[in-house]
Simulated scan of single mutants.
Amino acid sequence: MKSTIVKLFLLTSFAFLGVVSAGAQDMNALVMKVKAKLDKVKDYTADGKMKTDVAFIKAPIGKVKVFFKSPDKFKLQRDGGISVLPKGGVSINIGSMVMQTGFVAIDAGMSTVQNLPVRVVKLLPNADAGDIILSTLYIDEQNLLIRKSVTTTRENGTYEMELIYGKYDEYGLPDKVIFSFNAKDYKLPKGITLEFDDTDKAIKDKMKGRKGRVEINYSSYTINTGLSNSIFNNQ
């Protein structure tokens, strides 16, 4: 009798693990489809307007021009003012939300973003050495678009990004990006750059440990023109 119970338990366990494994494979395939769509963009130049709202500072809207070249070259030019944005183009280069290799994708069910149905996929890194603990993607399966992402790091808080698409959704490039973060322990998240026209330590101190929000609205993209590497020199 005990032997039969043990066998049934093992069979049930293996069946459950098989379902989990199949689900992980399906989610990995979905993530790779999204990545393949983003990989169509080898480079771009984009024009837009950026609004920054961090702690006690509400900066005026400023014009920006963004340059990107795959896989990770990025440059942002802006017209004065204050900006807080993820260095390396995290809010610009949407492909950076998808881990390149070494992750397991887990199905976390369905949800809605912008009144649209999305598949919630959690990306767990295989290695423990990196800063990222967990990335959660809210994927529009029909259009292979990431509508929202939430990234949790070991030491530098949690980042959230919402993406609104329009004219350039064929390339997975958003018309609007809303990036927000909540710094931990009076320490700004790693990769956040504070840019001031006049370096004011008192203002910087006030911003530590506060909530931040950056909104970028893009008016146009010029895609796959073969940007020169020299554009990204002397940043």
Rank of each mutant, 00 (worst) to 15 (best):
Phe67Tyr: 05
Met99Tyr: 09
Ile192Met: 03
Asp198Ser: 07
Leu227Asn: 04
Gly212Ala: 03
Leu11Val: 04
Tyr165Thr: 10
Asn93His: 00
Met110Val: 14
Tyr168Gln: 10
Ala129Gly: 12
Val214Asn: 05
Leu123Gly: 11
Leu124Asp: 13
Ser230Gln: 12
Gly109Val: 02
Asn234Asp: 07
Asn115Tyr: 14
Lys211Phe: 11
Ile164Ser: 15
Glu215Cys: 05
Gly89Ile: 00
Thr222Ala: 07
Asp197Asn: 02
Tyr171Met: 12
Asn182Met: 12
Lys2Ile: 10
Lys58Cys: 08
Ile223Lys: 04
Thr152Asp: 11
Ala15Thr: 08
Thr153Trp: 00
Phe74Ala: 00
Met97His: 14
Glu170Gln: 13
Leu194Phe: 00
Val19Met: 04
Met32Ile: 12
Thr101Met: 14
Ser13Tyr: 09
Lys206Ser: 14
Leu85Pro: 02
Lys35Ser: 11
Val20Tyr: 03
Gln77Ile: 10
Gln235Pro: 02
Gly95Asn: 06
Lys65Arg: 08
Thr193Glu: 01
Ala46Pro: 01
Ala108Lys: 13
Asp79Glu: 08
Asn143Thr: 13
Ser180Gly: 05
Gly102Met: 06
Gln142Met: 13
Lys69Asn: 06
Ser13Asp: 08
Ile132Asp: 09
Asp200Lys: 04
Asp140Ser: 13
Gly102His: 07
Asp107Gly: 02
Gly157Pro: 03
Val150Lys: 09
Gly95Thr: 09
Gly109His: 04
Val19Lys: 08
Ile94Phe: 05
Tyr218Asn: 02
Ala24Cys: 06
Val121Ser: 10
Phe56Met: 12
Tyr221Thr: 02
Pro189Met: 00
Val120Lys: 12
Ala108His: 09
Gly209Ser: 08
Ala22Ser: 09
Ile146Met: 13
Val54Arg: 04
Lys37Phe: 11
Lys75Tyr: 00
Asn224Phe: 05
Ala24Thr: 04
Ser83Gln: 04
Glu170Arg: 11
Phe16Ser: 08
Phe179Cys: 01
Ala55Val: 05
Asp185Pro: 07
Ala46His: 00
Met32Arg: 15
Tyr171Gln: 07
Tyr218Ser: 01
Glu170Phe: 10
Ile94Trp: 03
Phe56Asp: 15
Pro125Glu: 12
Lys58Ile: 09
Asn126His: 12
Ser111Asn: 15
Thr222Cys: 08
Thr101Trp: 06
Leu144Glu: 15
Pro174Met: 06
Ile216Phe: 01
Ala15Phe: 09
Ser135Pro: 12
Val214Lys: 00
Thr151Ala: 06
Lys37Thr: 13
Tyr221Asn: 03
Pro60Glu: 14
Val34Ile: 10
Thr193Cys: 00
Leu30Glu: 13
Asp175Ile: 01
Ala29Thr: 13
Val84Ser: 01
Arg147Ser: 15
Gly48Val: 01
